[in-house]
Each structure stands twice: as C-alpha cells, then as structure tokens.
Design a protein around this nucleic acid. Structure first.
Lengths: 365, 365
DNA sequence: GCCCTTTACGGTAACGTACCCGCAAGCTTA
DNA sequence: TAAGCTTGCGGGTACGTTACCGTAAAGGGC
C-alpha cells in the first residue's frame, strides 16, 4: 500500500512573466509590486492580481545579488561565565554558517559580566552601524535610555539568555525560568517523600531570570510538593566567596536540611562548602547549567540534577529569528521560552561534549 | 570598560577581481576554481593562490541565480502515529520555509506504519527523481535491496526517528534511545528508595530504537538503581489490545509491582488497564512521547514522567543537514543523537502546545 | 606543405531583480 | 502658445556567476 500526499510544486512565476501576461514592461511590474511611485491605481491592481494568479514568488537569489547588501549583526554578550556565553556565540556562528542566502557579517562585542558595562559597550560600538542586534540585557535601567534615544528607528533587537520585558524588543529567547524552578521543586518533592526543609541559593535577583526561577520553585513546591518547607531565599550575588559563606551559614543554621536548589550557575563554591562539612550526599542538590567542574558531582550522584539552559540553542534560535526578520520583515513570536534540559547522571554523556566544547559541529542538543 | 573582539569582515573578492589581478579572463578563473578542464596547471595554481590572497568567497546568490536548479527532496514517513510523524513533517516544513538560498520542493510520501510498506512507497515514488531523501527506516531487511540496487549513485539519504546502521546513509537523526531507557531507570531508582519490582512494556523489538531503550534501561537499572529488580520485558507489538492484555496480565502476576516503564508511544491502553484495576498511582509510571490523551495523566501525577522524542527538532535537523550537504557537498556528522526531553507535570506546559499543534510557528523546543 | 585535433584561454549571453534615465501625454502657469 | 511640471510607463544596465562558443597556438600524421 502506498499513499502519496504531494503538494505540487506548481510553477512559480517571475516578474517578467507578469509583465508579458499583462503586456506591460517589467519596470512597471516592479514598481507596482513594491508600492513605488509612478504607477496608476488600475495598473497596480492588475499587476497584483496577476501576481497572485501566476503564483509570483520573488527570486531571493536575484534580489540578493542585485542589492548586494551584506547584513551586519552586532552581538553583545558577557565574558563571564565564558563557558556559557561562548556556547551562545557558537550557536550564533553555527546558524550564521548555514545561512546561504544573504551575506552576514557578525561583530562580537563583550562586556565583563551580565549587567556590567553592556550599555557602555553598545554606545562605544555604535548602535547605528548594525542591521540587527543580539544582546543579553542584564541592566534594563541602564539600557532604557539607549533604547529610547533610538526609538522610532525600529532597529531589530533580540534578547538572549535573559529578558527585559520593559524594553522594546523584536523578540526574546530564554529558557523558561519559571519552569526551571518548577522542575527543581517537582523533582525534589518526588524524590523526598517525607517532610523536609528546602533551601535555595540564587544570584542577583534584579536579573529577571533569577527571580522567575525562584517564583517557579516556590509556586511548584507549594502545589506539587507541599510536604517540603521552603526556607528564605539566599542571594549570593554571583560572587564565589559569598556563595561559599552563605552555604556554610545555611548548614549551620539548618543541620537537618533535606534539599538545596542552586539557581545560579555559580554552584561550585556551594558544593565545596557542603562537601567539606560532610553534607554532600545527605542533602539532595539540584543545580543550574553545566560546566566541567560540575560533571563529576553529577556522575557520582552527589548532585541529583542540573537544569541546563541550552546556550547553543538560544544563540542559534536568536540568529535565525533575526535573519528571518531582516529578510522578510515578518516579526517572529516575541517571546520564546525554550524547555530547559534536565541533566541527570544517566543522560550526562549527551551534554558532556557540549560542555568541553571539543566538538563545535555538535548540534543544538 | 569595553572589549571588542571583531573578526574584521575584511573585503571579500569576486571572481572578476581575481581575473583583473592576474590579467586573465574570468572564464579561466572560473575553470580554475572549479577544477574544470581547459586550464594549465601553472595558471590554475596562480588562480588558487590569488583566490586565497584576495579572500575569495563565491557569491551564493549569484550562483543560485545562474544555475536555477530547484532541489527535490523526498520525505517518507509513516502515517501512524500521526501526532508524532506530523510533528516531524512540520519540522521539515519549517526548516524548508526558512531556507532562503535555494529553492526546494518537498514531496511527502506516507506509508501505513513504521516498517510496513516503506520500500513499496519508495519504489513507487521513484528514488531517481529526488536530490535527497529523508526516511524513517523501519524495515532494514526490505530496504536493503533497494539501497544496494542504487549503490554508487551516492544519493544522500537521511534517517529520522529510527536508525538502520546496516544501511548506507548520509546521516541519521534520532533521540538517544539508550539514554531514554537510562533516564527512566535513573528516575525510578531515585524516587523509589526501597527494593521493588520494575516492569517494562515495549514495542516491536525488531525496530532498533525499542531494543536500545530496553538495553539502556536494564544497564542503567543495574548500575544506578540496583535495589530495583527488573522483570522480563513485555513486547506489545504496537497493538492496543495486546498492550492492554499484557498490562492486565502483568499486575495479576505481580500485584506488588513498584514501577513501570512503557517504552512505546502506545501507552494509553496500559494506563487504562492500570486505572481500571486501581493500580494507577500505586505504580510509578514512566511513558514515552506525548499526545493529548496522555496529558491529564501527567497533569495529575499518575504518570511521573514521559520521555519526549522531539519529532519537530528531528525533522528540522534532518532537513537542515540534507540541504547543507546538497549545497556544499560537505558530509555532516553521520550519527546525531538528540537528548530526549523529560516531560514532568512541572514543565508539561512547555510541550503541550506542541502536542495540540495549534501553533505551527513554535520552535524546535 | 596541408588538414585535423587538442590545449588554453578570451569573450559573452543569460539567470531575475532593482533602479535609474528618458520620454510622451496631460496638465498648469505665465 | 511656449515653457515647465507631473504622471505613467518603457528601456536599459548592472549585480557575480556559469556555461557556452570562438579562436589562436601548438602538435601530430599524411
């Protein structure tokens, strides 16, 4: 038995076929199709109708050849944490490499840390020169003036890795942070069946994603795992020393701690603090993201799970969206929330080569 | 502070700049660059050197315009299970839509079920007419003769959703089935802390993926969750009635069953059997894939997790790889194993719109 | 010497589109 | 009525590449 459901690739017409069909010049057809001046209403209508009838599709190759414009895309990402943001950059580069239609020039700019120096970097680089921009917006207060200064220019900006809903943007790509927190709470509640205390260590709560993760965690804990009681969130401000001390404090205050959710990538000092005090293995730990030092902790089960934010996929998606918009001027979905990957010791091997980034040809896994 | 790491987009030369630099004709340059006949060795070398020196990049737009060849891609996928394979088709279509460079004609062919009628469909459709083929190879025994008949033609074939390692293929895209099984065993072992019996219900074990899932499950159970004892695998052959009866038998024989891993998408009859006998909620269940009927089971926690095989991402990746090969003749990584998504009630909402497929613009989440 | 083939290269017509120039008809204004 | 302007359209060129055709020059066989 055999079923064919062809959609016939029916002939697509060019601009000159329309001209021939209406016995007018291709110049006129061009003006009509592009709503340029110098065509009467009646002719324009006739052209548009015939274009639809003949199934006109502009030939992208010819257009690109003619208006030989290379696109310039500016990418503004933090240097820290390099292992994370380098994967974003790789995703962008990979997507750029597969782009066969239009010529794209990528210009990478860096600033020290998320929310630190990004507006500076943008202003120095010159917003103007880019056809589109990809950025991780850490400090929306600082970025606000820049965005409003260039308002009305409709420069397409795409946010990656974290969002800033107040700023006007073409699109934003992040993982679903609320879901990340929710998954952590869900898993902890499933594994720990009796009542227990749960703590969270987070990063800078002014960054949108961190707050969302916590909200998701708290909400999910209350509904899905009510037998777990949540301790007040500990904000570690991305500093290793802060995080270490906070963890030591925590286990001193709550020696009966059952579980811990580290919602920042800065989990290593926390793990060391737990290990040194003999709590690693006793406390069920869920972390965020993936980097080489974390691998052994997951491998030997001391860290139950880590929620991977898929930097490569984020970069790739952002670039694809931007180019698609620049080519077609059709706006993409404004908010895209990728599903975070749940990294366990059983599927760790699927992510490990990504982390060591020895295989740049690897896909957006 | 501001760090710029531009890789300068330095001027890229065209074919005629090389010609001018060497004071020869562009025809000669073209022949030299494409290793065509009619150029002396010395001139060829000079051209190639100058091409490198001037940073020659062929203008894809111009090339595509000139050799106006549309590519024809044949897609052969089963009809059953529609919700799964339709997502694969959507992924292919989505990738095709973003393809701006070359014109691609997609031709979809279907056959009833995986491994049933696929060789028939291919032979009827005519292997010859396609520049490339995407197929779900269920029955490698039947496909073998077809593949060997056309051996040496180097027709690029990409396998999706399941692999057939014996057949020559350009690439294969599946989820990592071994990891799927491993994740199931890992999670079950984490949630169930005391010794318990674990059963598996699988599909046709002649299909590569099903066997791999079981192997992964057994291996992972032995190493990560040794307190769980694995019962012999039950093969349900994709038939709903079979699956139902098998499940009833199972709980009759093992009323103390602790957990169940359904490694086929055909999990609904199993869930119904458990529900009718009051076992749903007592037995920890992990299923495979996602479809509307499964959603409420996950929502209310009766199914702990489901391992989603990302059909959309598989289709999209397969198409992108195929086109990239056809455009550049550079072979992709032969084996790509995507990480399956772990669907829990806490992240179910991220996948639910995919399942109801009301949003075809959604990404390869 | 002639004729034929081969080799190495020059020249050029497209591919479909965008954009500029030019021209005729109609209209306005002095 | 002449000069100037606007409107509506035709014609042509160029974008970078490929695929031909043409053609000198060199070589080989008679």
């Amino acid at each position: 038995m055999h079923y064919a459901m062809n959609q016939k690739p029916s002939h697509v017409a060019g601009i000159k076929e329309i001209a021939r069909a209406l016995d007018i010049s291709i110049g006129t057809v061009d003006r009509a199709l592009h709503a340029r001046a110098g065509v009467s209403h009646s002719t324009r209508d006739r052209v548009l109708k015939m274009a639809k009838k003949l199934n006109y599709r502009p030939n992208v190759a010819a257009r690109n050849l003619k208006l030989n414009h290379r696109l310039k895309v500016g990418v503004f990402l933090p240097e820290q944490i390099a292992l994370f943001y380098d994967r974003v950059r790789e995703g962008i580069r990979a997507a750029c490499a597969t782009e066969s239609g239009i010529g794209v020039d990528l210009v990478f700019h860096s600033f020290p840390r998320l929310g630190e120096g990004e507006s500076n970097a943008i202003e120095k680089a010159g917003w103007q020169q880019f056809d589109g921009i990809i950025i991780a917006p850490g400090n929306s207060a600082e970025l606000g003036p820049i965005f409003s200064k260039f308002e009305g220019q409709h420069k397409p900006v795409i946010f990656v890795t974290t969002d800033a809903a107040r700023l006007p943007r073409l699109a934003s790509i992040t993982t679903d942070e609320t879901a990340s927190g929710g998954i952590a709470a869900d898993l902890l509640g499933r594994v720990i069946s009796s009542p227990a205390k749960v703590a969270t260590i987070t990063g800078d709560l002014r960054i949108q994603g961190h707050a969302e993760k916590l909200r998701g965690f708290a909400a999910s804990l209350a509904t899905l795992s009510p037998h777990l009681s949540l301790l007040p969130a500990i904000e570690a401000h991305e500093s290793p020393a802060d995080a270490y001390n906070a963890a030591v404090d925590l286990i001193k205050k709550h020696p009966d701690l059952g579980a811990l959710y580290v919602s920042t990538a800065n989990s290593l000092p926390v793990l060391l603090a737990l290990e040194e005090n003999g709590y690693l293995g006793k406390v069920l730990v869920i972390t965020t993201d993936l980097f080489p030092e974390l691998v052994p902790f997951i491998e030997n089960g001391k860290v139950f799970a880590s929620l991977y934010q898929r930097p490569f996929a984020q970069g790739k998606t952002a670039f694809e969206m931007l180019i698609r918009f620049l080519a077609t001027r059709v706006a993409p979905k404004q908010i895209t929330r990728l599903a975070p990957h749940i990294v366990l010791r059983s599927n760790l091997s699927l992510f490990i080569n990504l982390v060591y980034n020895d295989d740049s040809s690897s896909l957006s896994i």
